[in-house]
Design a protein around this nucleic acid. Structure first.
Lengths: 131, 131
DNA sequence: CAGCATCCTAGTCGATACTG
DNA sequence: CAGTATCGACTAGGATGCTG
């Protein structure tokens, strides 16, 4: 894949709109703050209520959780169901679209297991500092 | 994978340090702002100098580019080579560790091609608003 | 319970100007 | 060229209090 010589395919000119790489758009949607823990919780523990999520995802504030959930709902990754009872009950669950991220997350987890230690080692080496 | 009943494996209690999901640590390292365009540029166009990166990644400022590169270097994803000449020349290249992300990025791109339109459709439907 | 409204802080980012 | 330094703007996020 690495191309430096000018031999073969014309690389897409990078006068692309704003982002030089095709993964950036996904990042905005899937890897914004708090989204992976939320999706993970919904995927792992199934449909659940607001408070359950709040308790599960430590240190998230209700405000931010609401914001994130709204965004995920808008993006079609999460489904919100409102039960008009007293007291009110709201349930969140992951959608099929959200579930389609599962293999990706698995891949990510796999990479982490294998390479996070290397990253930490690199940090140690770097912080120990040469000379 | 989805487990809600208590039949089988004991799910890891979510009194985890701070993050309820195993992918969060990777996100901090790999999907912080500007990192994917940078890694993508280095992976695609090979070793290159500071200005080349700066020109390729539109709208990034030298300050931020420096910061990001330093961090990527510290994490062992990028290798920086300083040539003490006049004028000075510095070259950046992706490391093996950085390159190990390639399949992941490919996977991500694949997901994007297939599902980004669905996300956009969901947004339209949501914004059109029910009722 | 599930939130929304309000206020406020802190970190990030960008713009600009200057050096070895 | 390859940065550093400084400043200012923006905003995600936290704290708190109130409702249906």
């Amino acid at each position: 894949m690495a191309v430096h010589g000018g031999t073969t395919r014309a690389m897409p000119k990078t006068d692309d709109p704003e982002l030089a790489c095709p993964v950036s758009p996904v990042v905005d949607i899937v890897f914004s703050r708090w989204t992976t823990p939320i999706l993970w919780a919904l995927h792992t523990y199934g449909r659940q209520r607001f408070v359950e999520l709040e308790r599960r995802i430590t240190r998230i504030t209700p405000k931010v959780l609401t914001e994130r959930l709204r965004r995920l709902e808008r993006d079609g990754l999460v489904i919100r169901t409102y039960h008009p009872e007293v007291p009110p009950r709201v349930e969140y669950e992951i959608s099929d679209l959200g579930r389609s991220l599962a293999p990706l997350f698995a891949h990510l987890t796999e990479w982490a297991e294998e390479n996070l230690p290397k990253v930490e080692e690199a940090r140690r080496a770097h912080d120990a500092g040469p000379v």
